[in-house]
């Protein structure tokens, strides 16, 4: 049986690791390739880099760290942030990424999802959706670090993204991201009920119970977390044990 994926995520800016609280107040914690290597050795099921560099220099630094990471990590690597075209996807894959996560560009120009899935295969296209609760049972997609409303309904767009060829949906709750208050379970439950592609829970993991809730109550196929692993609050081994205790299937590396 397929195991639940545990995915440590590194937010990267100008080639360095950072993690924001609600997308501001960034803390610097080192070299992404170095950090990824630690997660690789701990048996991460996948590793994710999200690039938040705004500048061209920052993008160049990203491709360099992807290449350095792929040199020594034999773990699937997803890279997102600033992916706007098939050429961006190609550049990431050539540098050594296994999947590209497309966020703003996929929301604004959904045809990009079809084009990338056709060119590179659905299995390497992750569509990243950042959603915020706007009414009971209703979530809207926001772009630009959670600042810009799009008027798009998260559930409807998740269905559209899956139909267009997304291989995974990376679902981030803007309300919860960086708070440590737990994933938005009602949001997860709605999205996982409406699509048949795997959904990765993101935004809000603060303890191990949050991981198990995402899988058991939210129907997530994978849990993504940054701070709880990054600052050593919990190890991947502890996360696996907690998920296993809650009845989820996990991998023992």
């Amino acid at each position: 049986m397929l195991s639940t994926r545990i995915i440590p995520c590194l937010d990267v800016k100008n080639g360095r690791v950072v993690k924001g609280v609600n997308f501001v107040d960034l803390r610097d914690a080192g070299d992404p390739a170095e950090q990824a290597s630690v997660y690789d050795q701990q048996g991460a099921d996948e590793i994710c880099f999200l690039d938040i560099s705004a500048s061209k220099e920052g993008r160049g630094a990203l491709l360099d760290i992807v290449a350095r990471t792929a040199e020594r990590c034999f773990t699937p690597l997803t890279v997102g942030g600033g992916v706007r075209s098939p050429d961006d996807v190609r550049a990431l894959l050539l540098a050594g990424a296994d999947k590209a996560a497309i966020n703003t560009a996929a929301i604004l120009e959904p045809d990009l999802i079809d084009e990338c899935a056709r060119n590179f295969g659905a299995q390497c296209i992750v569509v990243a959706i950042d959603a915020k609760a706007v009414a009971p049972g209703r979530w809207e997609i926001f772009t630009h670090g959670g600042e810009r409303p799009t008027g798009k309904d998260a559930i409807a767009f998740a269905e559209e993204a899956a139909a267009r060829g997304a291989g995974d949906i990376l679902l981030t709750s803007i309300d919860r991201d960086g708070t440590g208050a737990g994933y938005d379970i009602p949001l997860l439950r709605e999205i996982t009920a409406h699509v048949r592609v795997p959904v990765i829970a993101s935004g809000g993991a603060g303890n191990l119970d949050h991981l198990t809730a995402a899988v058991r109550d939210g129907g997530a196929s994978a849990v993504l977390a940054a701070s709880i692993f990054h600052f050593g609050t919990y190890s991947l081994r502890e996360a696996r044990a907690a998920l296993a205790a809650a009845g989820a299937v996990v991998r023992t590396p």
């Binding site: 049986m1 397929l2 195991s3 639940t4 994926r5 099921d45 996948e46 659905a122 299995q123 291989g167 995974d168 048949r196 592609v197 795997p198 196929s221 994978a222 991998r251």
Partner: peptide, 15 residues
Amino acid sequence: QIGPRDRLPHMGWNE
């Protein structure tokens, strides 16, 4: 051919 609870793509670590 997947069952009602399975997802596609088959993505991740399996036995």
